[in-house]
């Protein structure tokens, strides 16, 4: 055996443990703080004690959740809010991102600042600002009154309350993700498209959107994941019933003192989020492969 053979055979074996050590800490943390709570939550919800004092597996809490009209209407309300927010976010953020990417005026700098601003505002402050502006006897109401117009029907405490708040709250992240996607569309590619005769719409549809479809998917998955389990905004701005899953869980746990039911609601929420999460992972994987 020559010296080089030895080096060749020894090094990888020696290196492997170090690499594993490096990832061990985060992996253990994730296992402890994320994976274990999930497993324990699932076990708690399916493990019951029979009157005879024996343990048994039972899906009772889930069948209750999926047969209870109130739980279901909360779930569908959450899905509705998430869907509407996702659509609105795209409709609002795509034009902003396009403007920021393709405008080179000074105004763009301020628009960018405005678009990112909500990131620095805690949801709780946002909620109260919302109430002061759009709530009953808020600024808008007062302004309308002062010129003799009737009261608005305030979105406060309707399903649209959380929608407006959540969209506002999620604009910065969505804009930033879309903007980074648009960064990969080169100026020359855009100019070449115009050169062969593409107008604004054709340019958007055939050249720009296909190039940022991945970013759109990522942005939407991020927004959806956050919105689906949002708490503060729906809690303060939303209607009392039906309510979104976040406040619903909290109320079940704190006010109704039914931890098992609350955990079941959490597991169901988690199930939905994992589906969106898979979308995200898939698009990242596709991006990597390309």
């Amino acid at each position: 055996m020559t010296a080089s053979d030895q080096i060749g055979s020894v090094t990888p074996v020696r290196r492997r443990p170090y690499g594993l050590l490096l990832v061990a800490t985060p992996v253990l943390l994730v296992a402890w703080l994320v994976i274990w709570p999930i497993i324990s939550a699932v076990i708690q919800t399916v493990w019951t004690t029979t009157p005879q004092g024996q343990g048994a597996v039972s899906l009772d809490t889930y069948s209750f959740f999926f047969s209870d009209g109130y739980s279901l209407s909360n779930l569908s309300m959450t899905l509705w809010t998430t869907g509407v927010c996702a659509v609105l976010l795209l409709v609002v953020c795509l034009p902003i991102a396009l403007y920021l990417r393709f405008s080179n005026t000074r105004v763009a700098v301020y628009v960018q600042g405005l678009a990112i601003f909500p990131m620095f505002v805690p949801s709780i402050i946002l909620s109260f600002a919302f109430i002061r502006v759009l709530g009953p006897n808020g600024t808008v109401d007062l302004l309308l009154n002062s010129v003799g117009l009737p009261h608005i029907r305030s979105p406060y405490l309707t399903p649209w309350g959380p929608v407006i708040g959540l969209v506002w709250d999620n604009i910065p992240l969505t804009v930033l993700i879309l903007l980074s996607g648009l960064g990969s569309v080169s100026n020359q590619a855009v100019e070449a498209a115009r050169d062969v005769g593409a107008g604004t719409l054709a340019l958007l549809w055939h050249i720009i959107l296909p190039r940022i479809s991945n970013s759109i998917l990522v942005a939407i998955s991020f927004a959806v994941l956050g919105i689906f389990s949002a708490f503060t905004l729906p809690y303060i701005l939303g209607p009392a019933a039906p309510e979104m899953m976040g406040p619903f869980m909290q109320r079940t746990f704190r006010e109704l003192l039914e931890p098992k039911t609350a955990i079941t609601q959490a597991v169901v929420t988690f199930g939905f989020c994992i589906v969106f999460g898979l979308f995200y992972v898939r698009s990242v994987a596709k991006n990597r492969a390309a």
């Binding site: 020359q188 590619a189 100019e191 070449a192 050249i207």
Partner: peptide, 8 residues
């Protein structure tokens, strides 16, 4: 163009 102008 000089480069980077094809639609990938």
């Amino acid at each position: 163009f000089q480069s980077h102008a094809l639609w990938t």
